[in-house]
Amino acid sequence: MAFLPRAAAVAAFMAAACTSGSDPATTATAPPSITASGARSTSPASTPSMTPIPSGVPSATMTAPADPAGAEKEIKRVWERFFNPATSVEDKVALVEDGEMNSLMVEAFAKDERSGQIVGRAGTVRFTSPAEAEVTYALFRNSTTVQPFGRGKAVRQDDAWKISFTTMCSLTKYGADVPKAAAC
């Protein structure tokens, strides 16, 4: 006779699911259970427990490359080389993030008479991630300060530090005829 109470419970469950008007796929209750008295009961579905992250797992908040001092030196060299009139146009293109894609803008900046007179020096470098840094810089033209407190960015691309594309866009204003790339 144990068969009859189970069959009745299954029939009751199916009837309730069909007539309740709710979608069983979105209902957050566990399947009904039969109590000792034969009454049907439902309980809220249990939520899976969250597994804690082990304390030895590195967090994703690293804000500096493995060698910050070496990276800072490399970033400062990039800025000095970019603003050195003796640096070739091809080398300047290679010193800018996505320089190949934006070579017309970089070439125009490098060949422009007015921007060609600019010398730049990177000041402080503050890493915001292992592959990005904020850079303060100063720009000079003929021993006169043009931009004493510039703010730009450096990015790590193709295993090298480069002047960010957005910073390059902001530098075009120092030339006489340096058009910005369409993506600026």
Rank of each mutant, 00 (worst) to 15 (best):
V146W: 00
A12N: 11
G70D: 03
L139E: 10
P24R: 05
T27R: 06
P130R: 14
A181D: 15
N142T: 14
D177A: 08
Y174F: 10
A15Q: 08
E90L: 08
A28S: 15
G56A: 12
T61V: 02
L95C: 03
P148V: 07
S41Q: 15
A66F: 03
S170W: 06
V178P: 01
E113K: 11
E72D: 06
A66H: 07
A17E: 10
T124Y: 03
R81E: 13
A176V: 03
S41H: 13
G21A: 08
A60Q: 08
D112C: 02
M14H: 00
G120D: 02
T128L: 11
P179D: 05
V119T: 13
A60F: 11
T166G: 02
A176C: 05
A17H: 03
V93T: 02
K153R: 13
T29L: 12
F3P: 01
A122P: 01
F83G: 04
F149I: 12
M168G: 09
P68N: 07
M168F: 00
E80V: 04
R141L: 08
T42K: 02
E97A: 08
T26S: 10
P148D: 14
S115D: 06
D98N: 10
L139W: 06
V78S: 00
T61L: 04
A11T: 15
S33P: 06
T167Q: 01
E100N: 11
G56W: 11
D98L: 11
R6K: 13
T47D: 02
F127K: 05
T19W: 10
I53L: 12
E134N: 11
M62A: 15
W79Q: 00
S55E: 09
T61H: 00
F165Q: 12
K162Q: 14
P24N: 03
A39N: 12
R151K: 15
S129T: 15
A94W: 03
A9G: 10
L139K: 05
A86F: 05
S49L: 15
G70L: 03
P179L: 10
S43V: 14
L171R: 08
T19Q: 03
S49A: 10
R6N: 05
A69H: 01
V89R: 00
T29P: 00
V93F: 00
P179V: 13
E107N: 15
S88L: 01
Q117F: 01
E134A: 06
F127R: 03
A12F: 02
E97H: 09
F109T: 10
K76R: 15
G70M: 03
P44C: 05
S88E: 12
T172R: 05
V135T: 15
T144F: 04
T166A: 06
P54A: 14
T124W: 08
S55N: 13
D67N: 05
S43P: 03
F13Q: 15
V106G: 07
E74V: 01
A138N: 12
N102E: 09
M1H: 08
M105K: 00
D67K: 04
A182S: 14
M101E: 09
A60G: 05
E80A: 13
S170H: 03
R141S: 10
S115L: 08
A15W: 08
G21H: 11
P44M: 09
A160M: 09
T61N: 11
R126M: 08
D112S: 04
V96K: 11
